[in-house]
C-alpha cells in the first residue's frame, strides 16, 4: 500500500469560492498521481458550478460558483468519483524531450554545481539528462515546471543573491529540484544550461508543451544545434 497517501481526502476552506482537497502531505509520485487522476476524472465529468480545477504537488484547488454549488456537494461528488477511480482509464503521462545546450554563457553556474558535488561538467550533464523527471506542478510563472527526480549527486543550494533577470529558457537547479524558466524573470536557481524551445507561446494553438503529471527528459545539444533550433522556432 502507498503509505504516503491519506486514507481519506482532507478538505480545507480556501475562501467562499475555493475548496482545497489534499491527498497527502509529502512530495511523492504516488500522491501526485492521485492528484493528477482526480483532476483528469473531474475534467472529464465537469461538475456543475465548478469554474477551475488546479492540481499541484499533493492537492487540488477547486474553484466554484457559490450561486450554483456548495462545498458539501463537491465533497460528495469527489467521494463518488474517487470510488470509481479504479474502473476509469487514466491516460498515461506523456514524456516531452527538451533539448538543452549546457554550460558556457547558457549555464553560468554549471562549474559551481560540478565543484560543489565533486563532479566534472561532463558528469553533471550526463546525470542531469538521465532521469525522466515528473512534473509535479506548473506555476510561479507561465509554464514553469517543478520537477522531481533530480539525482542526489546534483543537489546544490540556491544562489545567495537571486538574479534580477534570468533569461528565457534557462535550466536551473535549486536544492533537490530542477526546472526551466519559460519566460525571463527574476530567479535564484543555479543555471546550468538553456533550451531553444519556446515552452510558453501564447499565440501558439497550444501555448504549452506539457502539463502537471507529464514527464520531461533533457537532451544535451551543441551550441550549433541550439542556434539552428532557435532559427526554426522563429519560423
Amino acid at each position: 500500500m502507498q503509505a504516503d497517501l491519506f486514507e481519506k481526502a482532507r478538505f480545507r476552506t480556501a475562501g467562499d469560492r475555493g475548496l482545497l482537497v489534499e491527498y497527502g502531505d509529502v512530495i511523492d509520485p504516488d500522491v501526485n498521481n492521485k492528484v493528477r487522476s482526480m483532476a483528469i476524472v473531474m475534467e472529464d465529468n465537469p461538475p456543475q458550478g465548478v469554474t477551475e480545477i488546479i492540481p499541484t504537488y499533493r492537492s487540488l484547488l477547486i474553484i466554484y460558483d457559490p450561486a450554483i454549488t456548495h462545498p458539501a456537494e463537491l465533497q460528495n461528488m469527489l467521494a463518488t468519483l474517487e470510488a470509481r477511480l479504479g474502473e476509469i482509464k487514466i491516460p498515461p503521462p506523456r514524456t516531452v524531450e527538451i533539448p538543452v545546450c549546457y554550460g558556457g554563457d547558457f549555464g553560468p553556474d554549471i562549474d559551481t554545481v560540478a565543484g560543489q558535488n565533486n563532479l566534472t561538467v561532463a558528469e553533471v550533464i550526463k546525470l542531469h539528462c538521465e532521469p525522466q523527471y515528473l512534473i509535479y506542478m506548473v506555476g510561479f510563472t507561465p509554464g514553469f515546471p517543478f520537477l522531481g527526480g533530480l539525482s542526489e549527486k546534483l543537489h546544490t543550494p540556491r544562489l545567495e543573491t537571486p538574479r534580477t533577470l534570468v533569461p528565457e529558457g534557462s535550466v536551473g537547479i535549486a536544492n533537490n529540484q530542477t526546472g526551466i524558466y519559460p519566460i525571463a524573470s527574476p530567479g535564484g536557481w543555479q543555471l546550468i544550461g538553456r533550451t531553444p524551445v519556446k515552452l510558453f507561446a501564447p499565440a501558439r494553438r497550444n501555448p504549452f508543451l506539457y502539463q502537471a503529471g507529464d514527464r520531461i527528459k533533457f537532451k544535451a545539444i551543441s551550441a550549433e544545434k541550439y542556434a539552428r533550433l532557435v532559427k526554426e522556432e522563429a519560423q
Binding site: 480556501a14 475562501g15 469560492r17 512530495i27 499541484t56 492537492s59 484547488l61 506542478m137 517543478f146
Partner: peptide, 10 residues
C-alpha cells in the same frame, strides 16, 4: 507548506 494554489483574498 508544500506549494499549493492561492485564491485572491487569501
Amino acid at each position: 507548506i508544500i506549494s499549493e494554489p492561492t485564491m485572491p483574498g487569501g
